[in-house]
Simulated assay, not measured.
Amino acid sequence: MLFDTHAHLNADQFSEDLEDVISRAQDTGVSTIVVVGFDRPTIKRAIELADKYEFIYASVGWHPVDAIDMTEGDLKWIEELSAHPKVVALGEMGLDYYWDKSPKDIQKEVFRKQIKLAKKVKLPIVIHNREATADVMEILKEEGAEEVGGIMHCFSGSPEIAKECVNMNFYISLGGPVTFKNAKKPKEVAAEIPLEKLLIETDCPYLAPHPFRGKRNEPSYVKLVAEEIAEIKGISFAEIAEVTTRNAKKLFDIK
């Protein structure tokens, strides 16, 4: 059975055919999905989906691109939702220096506040990092994020940074890019990171794996990610599926 640790089934791209998408996921052997909310509308929808489907869980947090919009009321709301029985993590949170909607200092402040909250409510965190590795690592260290640990979501950095993250109590999650023919770093990370610290995800509807690159991604495609990692590591698909599912259930404390 497969575990998609990061999906956005709460996105508008799934508004027309969500039931079909979920059916395909189940038919492909996807047993569990974490739907990630990152602002008011997507958090609300993530909770609705977790309430409706037994095998769907939610992660709630505030995306760095929208950090400028987050209020103290939003943070309080996330804290309240953290007590929901199907909220298994806080995030996605982090830093994004690719888009310039939110100034860096505000992104950093919102990131630090969410790490502090995660430590207070004792939940792991889901990290979004785009072109901001040095600052992300610095903040994780300064805020003592290893106390709760979490996921480096859709990891795109070097094996060296991945190992540093593992030493800080974080799992490395790989998605569609590991299947791209020119994706040198994700393939190196897949080869070098111990199996017990790896997770798989789709980040759907984004970053669809080969041969669907450029099209809408969906949870059933997480099987292609698992198959690619199995080939890179020279082990069976069944072992990758079993271990990454076990890792995810351990991290998210899903019995």
Score class of each variant (00 low, 15 high):
Phe180Glu: 10
Ala132Gly: 04
Phe3Asn: 04
Lys120Ser: 07
Lys113Gly: 01
Arg246Asn: 01
Ser156Val: 04
Ile151Lys: 00
Phe180Met: 05
Ile106Trp: 03
Phe212Gly: 07
Ala183Ser: 15
Asp105Met: 02
Val65Ser: 00
His8Gln: 06
Leu95Cys: 02
Tyr97Gly: 06
Phe237Ser: 03
Glu147Ser: 13
Lys122Glu: 12
Val178Trp: 10
Ile115Trp: 10
Lys197Asp: 10
Cys204Met: 06
Asp12Val: 11
Met1Gly: 05
Gly73Asp: 14
Val34Cys: 02
Glu146Asn: 14
Asp17Ser: 09
Glu142Trp: 03
Ala190Gln: 04
Ile115Asn: 08
Asp27Lys: 15
Asp51Met: 01
Glu19Tyr: 04
Ile56Asn: 03
Leu224Tyr: 15
Val178Leu: 02
Pro41His: 09
Phe180Ile: 02
Val166Asp: 00
Gly234Met: 08
Ala230Glu: 02
Asp20Lys: 15
His128Ser: 07
Thr133Asp: 13
Ala7Gln: 03
Ser236His: 04
Val21Met: 07
Ala46Arg: 08
Ser158Pro: 05
Lys104Cys: 10
Glu92Asp: 00
Pro64Gly: 09
Gly176Ser: 06
Thr32Val: 00
Glu201Asp: 12
Lys104Asn: 11
Gly176Val: 12
His210Trp: 09
Leu117Gly: 03
Lys52His: 14
Lys101Ala: 07
Asp12Ile: 08
Ser236Pro: 08
Val36Met: 02
Ala58Trp: 01
Tyr57Ser: 01
Glu142Ala: 15
Gln107Glu: 07
Lys119Thr: 03
Glu164Trp: 10
Asp69His: 08
Asp51Ala: 08
Lys44Ala: 09
Phe252Gln: 10
Leu95Asn: 10
Glu239Gln: 12
